[in-house]
Design a binder for these strands. Sequence first.
DNA 1: TGTTGCTCCCTTTTT
DNA 2: GGGAGCAACA
Length: 775
Amino acid sequence: MIDYAQALNEAQYAAATSGDGPVLVVAGAGSGKTRTIVYRLAWLAERGVSPSAMLLLTFTRKAAQEMLQRAGMLLGQGLSGVQGGTFHAFAYGVLRRWHPPWLGERPFTVMDAADITAAVKHCKDELRLGKGDRSFPKTQSIVGLLSKARNKELPLEEVLRHEAFHLLPHAEGLTALGEAYTAYRHEKGLLDYDDLLFELETLLRENQTAATTLRQRFSHILVDEYQDTNLVQARIVRLLAGSPDMRDGEEDGGQKAVTGNVMAVGDEAQSIYAFRGANVRNILDFPTFFPGTRIIRLEENYRSTKPVLNVANSLLSHAAESFRKTLFTRKEGGDPVRLVTPLSDMSQAKLVVRRVEELLDRHLPHEIAVLFRAGFHSYNLEMALNQAGIPFRKYGGLRYTEAAHVKDVIAYARLVLNPLDLPAFARVAGMHSGIGPKTVQKLYAAALAGDAKSTEKAFARHPGLLEDMRFVDDLRARPTSPASLFGAVLEYYRPKLESQYPEDWPRRQQGLEEIIQMAAGYTELDLFVADLALESPEEDENDGEGRITLSTVHSAKGLEWNAVLIIDLVEDRFPSRHALARPEDFEEERRLMYVACTRARQNLELYAPAAIYSRAERGSLHVNQSPFVRELAPGLTEEWVEGFGGVLSRRGGFSGNGATHGSRLLPPARTAVPAPVPAAARAEGEGAAFDDCQLWPESDAPAPDAPIPPRFAAQRPEPTPAGKSGADADRLCHCRHRIFGRGKIIKHLPPDKVQVNFPGFGLKVILTEYLLMEN
DNA sequence: TGTTGCTCCCTTTTT
DNA sequence: GGGAGCAACA
């Protein structure tokens, strides 16, 4: 028997060993949530609950597997048979057995992100929407809006009203587009991510056999990261557990099997998926929906040292929301949190590489992570790491399965499973020259009509495609394991790969071979293909050991490392410029920052470069520090500033420069009076922003109304089309950046920013008007 | 008519 | 680096 009381603290113990009935575990970051779930699983197993009666819904399959494995080790036996994974993967498993009736006998395919985009684009073109109208949103944004409306279960118009006011004139067109997209999926037998959840809900409501079977089977349900569930996911939990308010409907049938043994685990301070419809109300309302809910709070943090927690707590203390929570730890000491200010994003990459090399003396590679807000923020760093020969693994951003060559290969497998899979057919057909979107449609229509003669005629002009189809038919006729099927596809695809990507096909080929490894874990091809769309299966565990991790903060959820470096902590990146439409969006960014910081056990380092290279502007833009960095009280961090030549120096407190806490709004480069940029830096184009302009140390800065130094005064800008004279911009720059010169306001960027150009400097700056008001 | 090539622009987060 | 829009080509 396991000594639960010994292994767990009081609250954890209460959660792990609670009897039947609903339980809500509110678990702060690093409070031993996973440990609690693991012991809960073991405890249930010890009490005779069959593993196959447990359903463990987690954020990733990996998280579920890890918990099951740990629970199994605790018990000294395997815990196989537990269903575990994401809501979407679970839904697929169920729908695979109980087909949605409207599909009839047709097989269905789960759409991946590219399929969804292509389908929406297709419908948009069909409806002739947005042709020549620049104000009409791009396909990508439409996909986001449609999905958001479904996830929040609001009419599209309502979503537009709240988050994209400027698109309201297109509400009608977009709504029609949404309907066309739905019709498209129905017609083609396709399910997107949202469909999986809604179809599962429909099944549980309308198919009594299925509902009863599932309720009888799953007597104990555990849901992790409950704060990130959306409305339909919460209803699915209720339907599966059969909470009382669901009983007044038609589903009185399986009452005997309804137990309400649900344990929901979550933390409202870590809610970071509102953008896809996650609803914090779910966790708050849980006790209402499940009367008699026992609420257990885990508040002691076992993960992080004091300095790390101080920063995390400070972030939450500035939150607008009321969930003021403070984590506490008994871990004394610990390294200070570093706040580093590189000169630019390019030098940030170098500094991070250098720092990672230092940290590698103390930590194993897999104990170090670099986190960022968006996938593309790490591009520079990836190159620098490659140059330095430091292996890494990246999570988030573009996925493995989204690389073009990988999609090609998967398309063959999808056609084997479902000959009518239009997106896959389009992909395979499109590889042949001379076949574009229109021809694809014609060929597909011909094949669908089933008229052998006309089909043959249509395909006759494309012998290469005909060969592809024969290859696929052959594969279908001779069923093999998923791994050997992909082996055959890879061999067949090889010549196409070489001609398609003459420069780098060997690299891609290497990547493709990973597919066989991944497929080896599956016996059913359709499960594997669905998982490729739903959650990228892990490559083999072993080679992850020697690599550091790069990850978006979202993908870092639930994970922890000894050392965590967060990069690009500047305005417009973190928080993301797209996330500032509404105050609550800003709060979600704050929680995201909180999640990022609480991933660290010992070392936390924040990087806020003073300038960021912008391809569009062909130069470095000066950027402001992230508000999350600016608001940190000085004592919480140890500050390091990069001078020219890559020299890092400790900043000696705040005295001496006449700087106050408030003045930290200024870019810290003010402490280093720039020497001429070294030739080496010029050669690389780095620090372009600094080549021709000067940053003054704050103490030396003339008053805002001081005369403009003659060198710059010569540049007298014209009044701008944007309607503001150069003098306005001038003043702006005095206040915010201590850059002297006359700028032109080029563009007003709603809601509150302006872009200012400094002719003759090659410098463009985006300024926030509301910050100007502060001065 | 449909495909391909060129240029400009913008780049969130995930299932 | 990819999508969208436009122009030239088959």
